[in-house]
Computed example of a mutant assay.
Amino acid sequence: MDLYLDSADEPAWAELMPTGLFRGITTNPLLAQRAGLSYPDIDWTAIAARARELGAQELHAQVYGPVESYLNWATALYESGAKAGLATVVKIPLTPEAIRAVPAIKALGGPILLTAAYHPKQVFVAKALGVDFIAPYFGRMSEAGLPALEMIEQMQTIAAGQPRVLVASLRNADQMVALADRGLDCFTLSPDIARSLLSDPLTDGAAAAFDAAAAGQRLK
């Protein structure tokens, strides 16, 4: 199973990446905005170096602006990853205009993720283009009234391992459990969901009892 931390907030990276849970970090313009960053002004060489320093093997970042600018932006992102010593993955939204930019970016030789997937039919696009990942938005699908569990299970069946289905937009760990029960094994998690994986009240209580016993105390 591969987990990715979905955040542009470096303090959250510093808190959660050292747990060793995460293969990498994913981000996009919305996450950057929430972290108080100007996406066009991000220094990706510095960001990639920081991610690598914290143990990331991959950094996923999303294209933005005019489609004509995607190729140069992707080239720069791949170069930033190479300098930092980690894989950088170019995220491209599944819109008609953006899809047309995929072949030229694929020719650069770096990994690609198609993002904002909402329907199993979009897996055919990802397979035909030979990209590495497709990211369905589970939470947003559910909130739009779609049968998200069934649709993502169909995506997994159609993909058959290529591309990898990386589930995004999760709202809680229970959704992750339900998806894993259907064979999904690649998730991007918000810092809050990541924190929820690290603790459980009953586990915390058991650990406290162990410590108390070791200290010669008895808990009621």
Rank of each mutant, 00 (worst) to 15 (best):
D2Q: 14
Y4W: 11
L5Y: 03
A8T: 10
D9A: 14
W13H: 14
W13G: 11
E15Y: 12
E15W: 08
M17L: 15
G20M: 10
R23Y: 04
I25S: 10
L31A: 04
G36H: 00
G36P: 01
S38P: 00
S38F: 00
Y39N: 01
D41I: 01
D41V: 03
I42M: 14
T45V: 13
T45G: 13
Q57P: 01
Q62C: 08
V63C: 12
V63S: 11
Y64Q: 10
Y64K: 03
P66D: 07
V67M: 07
E68I: 10
S69W: 04
L71V: 01
N72H: 12
W73A: 10
Y78W: 05
A82G: 01
L86G: 04
K91Y: 01
A98L: 01
A101H: 01
V102L: 05
A104S: 08
I105T: 00
A107G: 02
G110L: 09
G110R: 11
I112E: 06
Q122W: 07
Q122V: 01
V125F: 05
A126V: 08
K127Y: 04
G130K: 08
V131W: 03
F133A: 08
P136D: 06
M141H: 11
E143Q: 14
A144W: 03
L146G: 00
M151W: 12
M151N: 06
E153L: 08
Q154M: 14
T157M: 04
I158L: 14
P163R: 02
V165T: 02
V167D: 10
S169P: 00
L170Q: 06
N172I: 08
D174P: 04
L179D: 07
A180S: 15
F187R: 00
D192A: 15
R195Y: 14
S196D: 15
S196K: 14
D204P: 08
A209F: 05
F210L: 14
G216V: 13
